Amino acid sequence: MVDGQADRRGLGPVLTVPNFFTFARLLGVPLFLYLFLATDATGWAVTVLAVGGLSDWVDGFLARRLNQTSRLGELLDPLADRLYILATLFALTYRDIVPWWFTIALIAREAVMVLVLVVLRILGHGPPPVHYVGKTATAVLLMGFPMMLLAHFSDAARPWAQPSGWALLWWGIVLYWLAAAFYVIQATVHVRAGRAAAAAGAP
């Protein structure tokens, strides 16, 4: 019954293996924040963050492999990515592990994406499909954050973890903004195509 209701709303099947992994990744966000900010279990917090980042591709891979793609999964997957990035960014900035200017650069990118989605919604369009550059940027950022955590809390790992972490974060933020530019272009083309189709069908 749940699946049928979801189908009528256009979300597709809900109780699928890929969606299970996505839900598990979503639960990892508050778990990471609790372990990192409310306890001394920094090692477990790093583990949760690393697993969440490394498993970013699992739900998409399983959806294609098992032929269980759904609109719900397409919506939840980027939501999980953004929540992981924003939660980690907040936590690391709060602990002075990541500087404020890096945080502002990522938040500004998210603000651009929200603005694009709002404009599309007002014009009657849905969000553009997830671009592989955006997925790559997310994966790179989610590898860089655990490196920065490791460098901050482990003197032995700092000599290699800190430069590796910064290299990943710089690569990730450049790709993140590049993906935003692609989304803006996609949205513009989509809106223009919709207007052209409407004009062609007008009497």
Rank of each mutant, 00 (worst) to 15 (best):
A167H: 10
Y183K: 05
A180N: 07
T42A: 02
Y84L: 14
D56Y: 06
L66I: 05
L49K: 10
L169H: 03
L62Q: 02
A200E: 10
T42F: 12
M113E: 02
A38N: 01
Y84I: 11
A199I: 01
L149A: 14
V46T: 06
A200I: 08
A6S: 12
D96Y: 10
D7I: 14
A200F: 05
V114R: 03
P159V: 15
D56T: 13
S154T: 13
L83I: 09
A151R: 08
P30N: 11
R95T: 11
F90Y: 14
S55Y: 05
R64A: 14
L168T: 05
I104Y: 00
L120A: 15
F20T: 14
F23N: 06
V189R: 13
F182T: 10
A111D: 00
E110L: 11
R158I: 04
V114Q: 03
L83A: 15
L76P: 05
G134F: 10
T42P: 02
L178K: 02
G10Q: 08
L79Y: 04
L169A: 07
I185F: 01
V46M: 09
T138D: 05
L66Q: 10
T136R: 09
F102R: 04
A151T: 11
I122E: 03
V189L: 09
L89C: 02
W177S: 04
N67F: 00
G4H: 09
A200K: 12
T42R: 13
G28W: 06
A167P: 01
M1H: 03
L11V: 08
G201V: 02
F23W: 10
S55C: 12
L141V: 12
V112R: 11
V46S: 04
P129I: 13
G52N: 05
P18W: 04
G4W: 06
F182K: 14
V48F: 02
A198M: 03
W177N: 03
I104P: 00
T93R: 06
A139M: 13
T136K: 07
L123E: 09
L92E: 07
A41V: 08
W100D: 13
A187W: 00
G172H: 13
Y183F: 14
V51P: 01
R95S: 15
L26T: 06
T16V: 08
A202K: 10
A187D: 00
S154W: 09
L79V: 14
R121W: 07
A167L: 05
I122D: 01
T88Y: 03
R25S: 01
A91Q: 05
L175P: 07
P78A: 08
I173V: 15
Q162V: 02
P128Y: 01
A87C: 07
F145H: 08
M113D: 01
G124I: 12
V116H: 02
A45T: 10
A50P: 00
T88P: 06
V191L: 14
D7K: 15
A80T: 11
P129N: 07
A6H: 05
G53N: 06
P30F: 13
V17Y: 02
M1E: 05
A198I: 11
A180S: 13
P203A: 15
A193D: 04
L89I: 04
A180L: 03
N67S: 12
G10P: 05
D59V: 08
D7Q: 15
W160G: 07
P78D: 00
